[in-house]
Design a protein around this nucleic acid. Sequence first.
DNA 1: CGAATGGTCAACCAAAAGGTTGAATAACCT
DNA 2: AGGTTATTCAACCTTTTGGTTGACCATTCG
Lengths: 135, 135
Amino acid sequence: MTGAIHRSATKGIYDSLMSVKLDAIFSALADPTRRAILAMLLEDDMAVTDVAEPFEMSLAAISKHLAVLERAGLITQEKRGRLKWCKLEPHAMREASVWMQGFGQFEPLNLDDFERFLAAEMTTVLRDTAPIRED
Amino acid sequence: MTGAIHRSATKGIYDSLMSVKLDAIFSALADPTRRAILAMLLEDDMAVTDVAEPFEMSLAAISKHLAVLERAGLITQEKRGRLKWCKLEPHAMREASVWMQGFGQFEPLNLDDFERFLAAEMTTVLRDTAPIRED
DNA sequence: CGAATGGTCAACCAAAAGGTTGAATAACCT
DNA sequence: AGGTTATTCAACCTTTTGGTTGACCATTCG
């Protein structure tokens, strides 16, 4: 029982990388600010300052969040001129998605649900971190 | 741009709950020991001591990990006699899965990939936390 | 009953996470 | 060149996380 775990020395490094990657991806996704950022980037690439604008948090903090997302492979950042453009890398989520889906067949994505989800989380994060101006 | 974020006061509590749930799920998944535990439970329900057995870590530590997983809704624990049975709740991952899939259409689950993934991560976690006995 | 087993609790600790501020670097604009 | 804008760095602080140990409760067994 559960004892039948085999070991392959040659796969070691690769396996380790996968585990590390999952660590990075899931812990990146564990923060609501970072999830909100990803949702924003889903609409369009953005420069760091623009990413930061909706949050009531220092630019440095956002910069750190972006670094976390980049380390996880969830976004890339490319400097053009003095702006650094942040771009979503949706493919990176695939590893995590594959892992999760192994635990059950989840229904094939209801996009409406997802939209609601995003909008909801966004308002929550913003309400919690920034006073919402209705001007 | 990105400024069109609407607010619905009535949805507030519910939204907040969703965000909290995603926080809990993703941060629970961010730890390799906890992912390994989930993978073990995929095969069968297990009592706490049996869950702990493969890891070189105190029972108390595993107990805490299980509490984290339970708070995230990823497992349930039921005490029967003096054993506490841990049971996977794969459904809980659906929320997170829906969220993630919104970022891209991932290929419809290659089970072989998943098996490799699990086995790989398992060996890695065990190698890192416990000396592997080949007896 | 008393002893062993299964599991958690409480106190503690080190390291990591998430934030701040102020200074530094880099690129653009007169 | 000098000023402004975009972004990061460094030092610092507080809270959370992941682990330890030892005492404690609950349940079964002899």
